[in-house]
Nucleic acid binder design. Sequence first.
DNA 1: TTAGTTAATTACATTTCGTAAGTTAGTATA
DNA 2: TATACTAACTTACGAAATGTAATTAACTAA
Lengths: 110, 110
Amino acid sequence: MMKLNQSLLCPKFEKAMQILSKRWTGLIIYQLLSGPQRFCAIESALPISGRLLSERLKDLEQEGIVNRQIYPEVPVRIEYSLTKKGLALEPMLREIEKWSQTWVQIEEGL
Amino acid sequence: MMKLNQSLLCPKFEKAMQILSKRWTGLIIYQLLSGPQRFCAIESALPISGRLLSERLKDLEQEGIVNRQIYPEVPVRIEYSLTKKGLALEPMLREIEKWSQTWVQIEEGL
DNA sequence: TTAGTTAATTACATTTCGTAAGTTAGTATA
DNA sequence: TATACTAACTTACGAAATGTAATTAACTAA
């Protein structure tokens, strides 16, 4: 039988979750909380590949969460930063930070 | 050249993001904030398929975020609920809720 | 000329996801 | 007795997302 999708879920909340639950999105925004930075800086701060970082930054720019600023120097410098919309995610990320310190266990050694 | 992964990322935070940025994880926990409920209730509240819901609930149980309670009635009733660790995620989800109301636009029509 | 840089893009194999159908165990209906 | 229905899964399989590595463009430096 077909599933009629009559979820009572708020569309704005659903959209937010769609963006934020994509792999790497949260970590990229978290990284940018420490200030505007270049592609290679984000790449070396996170265990993400260039291919996906490029893709995610494009998505986040589309969503108005990240700003891409080109400085036409030699060689060209491109800096990524958070927009107001992106900065507004800081409280959420701080909550995850708090939760992780209290509840997440890391198993050491082997 | 090989990428040496010397990320200064806190392992607990990274682990938290790994769990929470999996597709559907956040929405399932959000749904369970409204109280213990059965598989089919979650399934019809969210646009998720049975296959993935089953998989995610198993993951979340493993992580100690969700509890699976069997009531040996006829027919058997199985209820999923949040553990303390899971309930502790409420503030984070409320922040996403707030953010989505302020910043997310939904385009209507076509 | 060769090598190195940044910010990507492309190719390709692996993993995850979505859709649909099937399973198990029991109840209800004709 | 046969058929249909329910809950909670599981299986099969094609499609989409991801990870790894190589390549590109435009420029500098040795």
